[in-house]
Simulated scan of single mutants.
Amino acid sequence: MYDFLSYHKEAGVGTLTLNRPGVYNAFNDGLTYEIQDVLKAVKKDDEVRVLVITGEGKAFCSGQDLKESASQKDRSFSDSLHKRYNPIIRAIRELPKPVICRLNGVAAGAGCSLALACDIIVASEEAKLIEVFINIALVLDSGSSYFLPRLIGSSKAFEMSTMGTRVSGKEAFEMGLVNKVVSANELDDAVKGYTDYYAKAPTRSIGIIKKMLNKSQNSSLNEMLEYEAYCQDIAGSSEDYKEGLNAFLEKRKPDFKGK
């Protein structure tokens, strides 16, 4: 079905795998549009309760395929971002479901941005995050200028982005860039620990929480207090809330359906 990625779903978990291992899963036009297509499908698919994004082979994603870019002489950077990259980042942040990055190897440039846009990053010790834009005299894009300072502060973000610093999986964990770092042979089990939880969690409520946290980045306390009250009414009308309450009263484990 897809030429540059693979996608499958099983037991509530969707897995999107970038599949251009020969070029370290670098983005070409086709791959970016295919990712957009999968994200649209996942949003509409009630069977998918959590999405995992990863890369085939040794790398997660090395960013834009520069050989392809060099062959397109009149390419507009802004058009490329508006049509190809920005829709991906927005779709991940607006997806009302958790998105987990299985960071199996290098994530560079826009590939680093893709990882940072996810809700949770589980990294291999062999993984590296690199904002490589400066190495060809370009600037951050695909959301990195938004995510980096919020995750690690302005000074570290400046250093990482202006020096093209290679950050290992362990260093990324210590900096707060990733949620968990494990050895390569433990990566699948570590990701499964998250997907097992989210595939049976109250998905609708998690989607609301994700929206709240996004909004809080640029809101005052009073604005968030009002928004919390608004959102709590929505969550309190869900089927999962009723199930959770009944399970508590009946002293059993809730069976959430994500509705």
Score class of each variant (00 low, 15 high):
residue 205 S to N: 13
residue 30 G to M: 01
residue 206 I to M: 12
residue 17 T to M: 08
residue 186 E to P: 01
residue 115 A to L: 07
residue 13 V to S: 03
residue 124 S to D: 07
residue 143 G to H: 02
residue 72 Q to Y: 12
residue 35 I to S: 03
residue 190 A to V: 05
residue 168 S to P: 04
residue 50 V to Y: 01
residue 53 I to W: 06
residue 217 Q to L: 15
residue 254 P to F: 06
residue 47 E to Q: 14
residue 126 E to D: 15
residue 179 N to Q: 08
residue 111 G to D: 00
residue 32 T to K: 00
residue 53 I to L: 08
residue 203 T to Q: 08
residue 175 M to G: 09
residue 170 K to W: 10
residue 86 N to I: 11
residue 128 K to M: 12
residue 99 V to T: 06
residue 240 D to Y: 06
residue 234 I to K: 05
residue 173 F to G: 08
residue 239 E to P: 06
residue 196 D to T: 10
residue 62 S to P: 00
residue 89 I to V: 10
residue 258 G to L: 04
residue 121 I to V: 09
residue 185 N to T: 11
residue 21 P to Q: 03
residue 169 G to Y: 00
residue 241 Y to N: 13
residue 129 L to R: 01
residue 253 K to L: 15
residue 83 K to I: 14
residue 237 S to H: 10
residue 74 D to L: 13
residue 27 F to S: 04
residue 222 N to Q: 15
residue 63 G to I: 02
residue 57 G to W: 01
residue 97 K to L: 00
residue 168 S to D: 05
residue 256 F to D: 06
residue 240 D to R: 07
residue 71 S to M: 14
residue 50 V to L: 03
residue 19 N to Y: 08
residue 141 D to L: 12
residue 175 M to D: 01
residue 167 V to T: 07
residue 18 L to H: 00
residue 84 R to A: 13
residue 27 F to W: 02
residue 165 T to A: 14
residue 136 I to S: 09
residue 202 P to V: 07
residue 28 N to I: 04
residue 176 G to W: 07
residue 235 A to G: 08
residue 60 F to C: 05
residue 8 H to Q: 12
residue 5 L to Y: 09
residue 234 I to S: 01
residue 22 G to F: 09
residue 175 M to P: 05
residue 218 N to T: 11
residue 108 A to N: 02
residue 230 Y to F: 15
residue 176 G to E: 06
residue 229 A to M: 11
residue 126 E to F: 13
residue 144 S to R: 03
residue 74 D to K: 13
residue 216 S to L: 05
residue 245 L to V: 10
residue 108 A to H: 02
residue 212 M to R: 07
residue 253 K to C: 15
residue 199 A to N: 07
residue 150 R to K: 14
residue 157 A to N: 07
residue 146 Y to C: 10
residue 95 L to K: 02
residue 64 Q to N: 12
residue 158 F to G: 06
residue 221 L to W: 15
residue 204 R to C: 13
residue 113 S to M: 05
residue 212 M to Q: 09
residue 159 E to C: 06
residue 136 I to M: 12
residue 218 N to P: 03
residue 192 K to Q: 14
residue 21 P to W: 00
residue 245 L to F: 09
residue 118 C to E: 02
residue 105 G to R: 03
residue 224 M to L: 14
residue 162 T to Q: 10
residue 193 G to C: 07
residue 158 F to V: 12
residue 204 R to G: 08
residue 158 F to R: 10
residue 241 Y to D: 09
residue 252 R to L: 09
residue 141 D to V: 08
residue 33 Y to V: 14
residue 15 T to R: 08
residue 67 K to D: 10
residue 119 D to R: 02
residue 60 F to D: 02
residue 184 A to T: 13
residue 139 V to H: 12
residue 72 Q to A: 11
residue 238 S to Q: 02
residue 113 S to P: 02
residue 8 H to F: 15
residue 49 R to Q: 08
residue 85 Y to A: 08
residue 196 D to M: 09
residue 73 K to Y: 15
residue 47 E to D: 15
residue 58 K to Q: 13
residue 258 G to Y: 04
